[in-house]
Every structure is written in structure tokens, then in C-alpha cells.
Amino acid sequence: MLKINCPICGNRDETEFSCGGEAHIARPIADNKLTDTAFSEYLFMRDNPKGVFLERWCHTSGCRRWFNLARDTISHEIIEIYPMGQTPKTAKGKKAYQANWRRKSKAEAASKPAKRTVK
């Protein structure tokens, strides 16, 4: 039984939460030129580490807010809980974030709008 320290409500049992899977999956912008292969990396392919995993969770029985969580998938130790929209701050969390193949994926690159140039 995980005990998760919801940033809003405090320490609660895992039964109050829903896990939203891998965190930090950025959606390619609508105007993207990705191939099906590259797009499938966004849509279906997932990080699935045996070790530190960055996930997003929702406190469904409580405040219903989402947050991010770095957890070891072997020991279930929760390493860090950090706000939605931010990246991890601990060394282990940062390492997991950088090491994820998704950081180098075309789909993630396509989630940032191209810089506009003024003609």
C-alpha cells in the first residue's frame, strides 16, 4: 500500500488516487510534420523502467488535483513529489527525466512551437 503525500491534502492511502502513467509526455503541436513512426512514440510508446519512474497521479477521492511523482518501481519508494507542469528537483528524479528516451524523440521536439520569424 503506497502512502502518497498529496501536495494539497497530505498523506493518504493509494486507494484515494488514480495513476496517470508516465509523466512529461508532451503532445506534438497540431501543425506537426511527424511520420506515423514518430507520432506513435507519443501516442503509444512508453517509458517502463525497472527503477526510478516519473509518473503523474490524481487525487481522485480528494482534491482531484494532479501532481507528478518520482517512484522506484522495484522498492516503490517515493523519491519526490512535484507540481504538475514542473520537472523533478532531486538528483534521482532529474537523472530519470534526462535519461528518458522521450527527451530525444521527434515527437517531443514537435511539441514546442517553432520560433516565429518576422519577415
Binding site: 500500500m1 503506497l2 493509494e14 525497472k50 519512474f53 517512484r71 518501481t73 522495484i74
Partner: peptide, 11 residues
Amino acid sequence: YNSYAQTGSWP
């Protein structure tokens, strides 16, 4: 939620 622990949780 993902796990390699081969246990699962009680609920």
C-alpha cells in the same frame, strides 16, 4: 501502477 516487485498491493 507500474511495478517490478512481484507483490502487488492489498486493496
